[in-house]
Write a protein that binds this DNA or RNA. Structure first.
Lengths: 245, 245
DNA sequence: TAACGTTTGTTCGCTACCGCACAGATACGC
DNA sequence: GCGTATCTGTGCGGTAGCGAACAAACGTTA
């Protein structure tokens, strides 16, 4: 059984009124997610949804030829598995843990039951899905019109916004898979950012040194997404954990 | 007042049970949408949602610099304005009529009222939104990994699937805006398709001559999207109009 | 210490697409 | 019929990113 104090680290759950939270509480399980682990595969049924605490999950869309693109990133501000209550049952995208950590897991039918009571949980999850839609749309246009340098800045910013500190463990290779580009391209862009003093990295360990500087180098996509999340999800009491959005 | 027989041209509405349809009927207005007309602008409040009959609407995401990319296309299988019931109130994207025709319009509050009764309408609209999510994700990955020729094929196929026949009125310039590329690029790709006998075009009038051929030239993205729409929305009685999905 | 796998740095030619410029063809209004 | 706007075709140099290949630096294990 979880102590309520730990639950508030997930923003979505922290917004729930006590009554609904109490109904969910017995069914929430704390799990450890490992980097690289898959939470869902395209077209496969989902048995659980996940509310990340200090972990980050990437939603990927994969082509026939095997190349992939991240279409959204989920941290402690959200959840993985919206397609369940949207009525799809199966997941349309692959969900990969891109930064290991803890998450709360909830069996599908418990989530559906609560959702179809049509109370706060439903409103909250729908607003979150709307934020996800915005993120996906903005990612799509960013892939099209902004260069790799800008995309890398956006990606780093979205990641550290969802982490407790300004460091992340991630190789260039991984980032390349997320952005749908070559590893060498990431190495080159990351090199520029390091020379500019914005980040430092070493063998899969990246430190963001100058967040504001990154924002200046990023395209507007980061801000657009962030502001939409704030608008849709920050209308209630703030979340208790440190850097959460 | 609308005759019920005309309503069935929109797939979403045709799936509604009679009771719910009767509640909506008095509030549905038939409107003519003109090519190029904007139904919603990014960040602006929406007063109506639209159920296209023989018109097609593009959802666009626009960058600061003014370049745009289509993130989804909506025809008589869907509706424009999902963000209303998702809780966003304002539209996150620009909705532009890309093929003029008729649509049914419903004032926001009537839609919300029906949605929050948590009946068939809610389930249906959520399933549709799920299909929209899939389309957006697939479009994003397509922009990233597939070349212009393939994207053009996908785009043409998605368009004629939503039209009563195999011709559409659309200049290369417009298509370029949708795909987020140069007009010259579209001219070149369209030229190839014409030489291959798959389409013919002349000053903004495009005829699809060989749909199967187009599908062979397209990337898998078209099929993925189409099958997901079929799966999510074709589970009930078929729609009455001719070529509807 | 030595061997090996992983991560990053760098180079080279190649391709798709960009941005620009301009020309021809067609449709439309006066 | 004529002028004009729109649509399409084409040709240029430029560039961002690709694919492949390889080297160097680092960490881990034996």
């Amino acid at each position: 059984m979880l102590r309520p104090s730990n639950l508030t680290q997930n923003a979505l759950l922290s917004f729930l009124p006590e009554e609904e939270m109490n109904r969910l509480l017995p069914h929430l399980e704390r799990v450890i997610l490992k980097s690289g682990q898959s939470l869902s595969e395209s077209g496969q049924p989902m048995y659980y949804v996940y509310f990340p605490l200090d972990s980050i999950i990437s939603l990927l869309c994969v082509t026939e030829s095997g190349s992939s693109t991240e279409i959204a990133v989920v941290g402690n501000e959200g959840m993985v598995g919206v397609s369940l209550f949207m009525g799809g049952d199966t997941s349309p995208s692959r969900a990969i843990v891109h930064s290991g950590g803890q998450a709360l897991r909830l069996a599908s039918h418990h989530l559906k039951n609560e959702f179809y009571r049509a109370g706060s949980m439903q409103r909250l999850l729908l607003r979150y899905t709307q934020a996800l839609l915005t993120q996906m749309a903005q990612t799509a246009v960013c892939n099209c019109h902004h260069n790799l340098d800008q995309q890398l800045c956006r990606w780093l910013l979205l990641s550290i916004d969802r982490l407790p500190n300004n460091e992340l463990f991630m190789t260039h290779e991984w980032i390349a898979n997320m952005l749908g580009v070559r590893r060498e391209g990431v190495t080159e862009s990351a090199g520029k950012l390091q020379k500019a003093g914005l980040i430092s990295y070493h063998r899969g360990h990246i430190c963001v040194l100058d967040q504001l500087g990154l924002e200046e180098h990023a395209c507007e996509c980061y801000t657009v997404v962030k502001e939409e999340y704030d608008r849709l999800l920050d209308q209630r009491q703030p979340i208790l954990s440190g850097r959460a959005m």
